[in-house]
C-alpha cells in the first residue's frame, strides 16, 4: 500500500514537472518576440516536457509493452525534435529580412562560395549526392 502511494507521488511529481515545462514553453512562444526566440521556448517543451510526462506514464504502467512504446516515443522525440528545430531555424535564417538588425552573425567560416547559378543545367542541378 505504501509502495503504491510512493509510486503515485513519484508519478505525480514527474507529471507536475512536465506540465510546468509545457506551460513555460507555451508562455514563451506567446510572449517572446522573434521566431528564433520562440523556437528555443518550443524546443524546451518538446524535449523536457515530453520526457517528464512520459516518465510519469511509464511509472504508472510499470513494465509492459505499452511502456516500451512510450519509451520509443520519447526516443523518437529526442531524435526528431532537434532536427525539426534545425530546419525551422534554417528557414528563418534564409527568409527573415530583418535578421541582420537583431543579430550579428559571421559567415566566413561557412564560406559563401556558391558561384554557379542554380539554373545552370540539368547535370549540375541533379548532383544532390554527398
Amino acid at each position: 500500500m505504501i509502495l503504491e502511494w510512493v509510486r503515485f507521488i513519484l508519478a505525480g511529481g514527474c507529471f507536475a514537472v512536465g506540465i510546468v515545462f509545457m506551460i513555460l514553453s507555451v508562455f514563451g512562444v506567446n510572449r517572446l518576440h522573434h521566431a528564433l526566440n520562440r523556437m528555443h521556448a518550443a524546443a524546451m517543451g518538446d524535449t523536457l516536457g515530453i520526457l517528464f510526462v512520459f516518465l510519469g506514464l511509464m511509472l504508472i504502467r510499470g513494465f509492459s509493452m505499452s511502456s516500451l512504446k512510450l519509451f520509443l516515443v520519447i526516443l523518437f522525440f529526442w531524435v526528431a525534435s532537434p532536427v525539426s528545430g534545425h530546419m525551422i531555424s534554417r528557414l528563418e535564417a534564409m527568409t527573415d529580412e530583418d535578421l541582420g538588425e537583431m543579430a550579428v552573425l559571421e559567415f566566413d567560416a561557412i564560406g559563401a562560395d556558391g558561384e554557379e547559378s542554380p539554373i545552370a543545367g540539368e547535370e549540375e542541378l541533379e548532383h544532390e549526392s554527398v
Binding site: F76, H86, R90, I119, E128, V130
Partner: peptide, 27 residues
C-alpha cells in the same frame, strides 16, 4: 517548367537531416 519549379532552390544535402533520416527511416 524546370525554371519555374521551386524545388531547385530548396536546400539540399543537409547533413543533419541526412543523419537523422539514416536513424529514423528504418524504424
Amino acid at each position: 517548367l524546370m525554371d519555374e519549379n521551386d524545388r531547385l532552390f530548396e536546400p539540399k544535402n543537409d547533413i543533419i537531416l541526412q543523419k537523422c533520416a539514416c536513424v529514423l527511416v528504418p524504424f
